[in-house]
């Protein structure tokens, strides 16, 4: 495993920790999209179907369990925790996320590397992850007073995607037969979706003001 890939995984892990820390310590999920979190839970379930059938490494299995566990606990907190659920911006988080699920499933049935159940679910998870941030970005744009932790969380998620692209470039040049167009294109689409956010993130950082996306 190369350093870019490890850095990507760690950034992803830290983003989840930041989010859980926010929810757990200040008992608030204000500014966080439940739609996006539910999509991520679905992404991990469909991608990690091989968790008990194909052993890759201890690192791989542990990370999969962490991502599955944390994504479901975040959804649980936002939906059912007595205090946390009160801070959820339900009226603002109106993105119809099932409109993303169906097209991704159809696309996975049409464009995949192999027509098997596991492979189609895996491809579906790639397509869905690419667009899963959309409800969160819409919510961010609508929220007036976004707290710092929410902004850091989204920044870390975007950084994780950018690092994965660098990892793919590195692997392409160092490993023979490493060619994965479906993963690369969906990963690229996903990173592009963060482009606008990154632009305003650096602007707010440079000018030392609170980040606010223009409506």
């Amino acid at each position: 495993m190369n350093i870019l890939r490890l850095a990507g995984d760690m950034t992803h892990l830290i983003s989840v920790i930041v989010l859980l820390l926010k929810i757990h310590s200040i008992k608030s999920c204000a500014g966080i999209s439940l739609k996006t979190q539910e999509l991520y839970a679905l992404v991990f379930v469909s991608r990690y179907l091989n968790i008990f059938t194909d052993f890759i490494s201890l690192y791989n299995t542990i990370m999969k369990l962490i991502f599955l566990g944390t994504s479901f606990s975040i959804v649980w907190y936002m939906r059912y925790h007595k205090i946390v659920r009160r801070s959820y911006d339900k009226d603002q988080d109106t993105f119809r996320h099932y409109f993303l699920v169906l097209p991704c499933l159809i696309l996975a049935l049409l464009i995949n590397e192999r027509f098997t159940f596991k492979e189609i679910m895996w491809t579906f998870s790639l397509y869905l992850e690419a667009v899963a941030i959309l409800p969160q970005l819409v919510l961010l744009q609508r929220t007036k007073n976004t707290d710092n932790l929410t902004v850091q969380y989204i920044f870390l998620l975007g950084a994780y995607r950018a690092l994965y692209i660098l990892n793919w470039i590195y692997r392409y040049f160092t490993e023979p037969d490493y060619l994965h167009w479906i993963t690369w294109i969906s990963g690229l689409v996903q990173t592009i979706l963060y482009g606008d956010f990154f632009y305003y993130y650096f602007l707010s950082w440079k000018n030392n003001v609170k980040l606010q996306l223009p409506a």
């Binding site: 495993m1 890939r5 995984d9 992803h12 091989n50 194909d54 890759i56 490494s57 791989n60 990370m63 999969k64 991502f67 590397e113 192999r114 895996w122 994965y164 990892n167 692997r171 490993e175 037969d177 490493y178 994965h180 993963t183």
Partner: peptide
Amino acid sequence: IQSDSIKDEL
């Protein structure tokens, strides 16, 4: 044969 190297990624 299609290489499955990508499957070691998360």
